[in-house]
């Protein structure tokens, strides 16, 4: 019985530890960042989310959409209703048809989803030398390494490709990107933005903040999930302990 158990557990560890081999095996190892949202008590730092949103808005959003997030969701970051209305109001969305059958443009509302930078993929490719900047709503869940990867990619540009690497036209060297050639120019520069809360805008700071923000856009339920999980697991551990005691008591009469 015990041998069976040990073997089964070891076997399971071998099986699950053996993740699929990455197709981009040679990409550099990701620096392991300590995120506030890791672990059973993980949570988002509201100030950091707001800074990350500022980086997204001032840097990323000129090419990358965030279409699964609505402006109303910004309430999670601590924005007030009027602030959200103001943010949304900076964008225009097509609506209609009106009573005369015409489509028209209006200011975006809190209920609208983030307005994408390009009307469609073709327009996005045209403006970006043929490359398509992906929507960032789920990017942290859609990449191996998650937030660590996003952070490493953003902060990991090198000025020049190492010797022997031929970069394609309009490509940049990034050791963390599969194939090491990326069409996105280095997006972050020291003090490239001025944080509203006065934090120093180093490349690493901005990369960390925006990765946190994108972790939130990918898993907006994260805090609720971990809080509920803790209650559920504590309840289950106590219940299971009591069930075990009852089982012992009932079975003590047999044998």
């Amino acid at each position: 019985m015990h041998r069976f158990l040990i073997t089964a557990v070891t076997a399971a560890a071998v099986l699950f530890g053996a993740g699929p081999a990455s197709a981009a095996e040679e990409t550099a190892e990701l620096p392991d960042i300590e995120w506030t949202f890791e672990g059973p008590f993980g949570h988002f730092d509201r100030a950091q989310l707001k800074r990350g949103f500022q980086v997204y808005r001032e840097v990323c959003s000129s090419c990358h959409g965030l279409k699964r997030v609505a402006y109303r969701n910004l309430a999670d970051l601590g924005f007030t209703e009027s602030e959200i209305a103001e943010i949304a109001g900076e964008y225009e969305v097509e609506d209609g048809p009106d009573d005369e059958g015409e489509m028209y443009f209006r200011e975006a509302l809190a209920s609208d989803h983030f307005v994408p930078p390009f009307p469609n993929d073709q327009a996005a490719r045209l403006a970006n030398g043929g490359a398509l900047p992906p929507d960032l709503s789920l990017i942290v869940k859609a990449r191996k390494g998650g937030a660590d990867y996003i952070h490493a990619l953003l902060a990991g540009y090198e000025d020049e490709a190492p010797e022997g690497v031929e970069l394609g036209d309009g490509m940049y060297y990034n050791a963390y990107f599969p194939g090491h050639q990326i069409a996105m120019p280095p997006p972050l520069f020291e003090d490239g933005i001025e944080y509203e809360d006065g934090t120093e805008a180093s490349i690493d700071q901005m990369a960390t903040d925006v990765s946190t923000f994108l972790a939130w856009t990918a898993s907006p339920e994260l805090e609720a999930r971990k809080r509920l999980g803790l209650k559920v697991l504590i309840f289950l551990v106590v219940l299971t302990g009591m069930l075990y005691a009852l089982k012992r008591q009932i079975w003590s009469k047999v044998h």
């Binding site: 971990k226 999980g229 803790l230 559920v232 697991l233 289950l236 551990v237 299971t240 069930l243």
Partner: peptide, 13 residues
């Protein structure tokens, strides 16, 4: 009970 602890640990964490 034991199974649910394992299952839900994955679900929540």
């Amino acid at each position: 009970g034991v199974f649910l602890i394992v299952y839900l640990a994955f679900v929540f964490y």
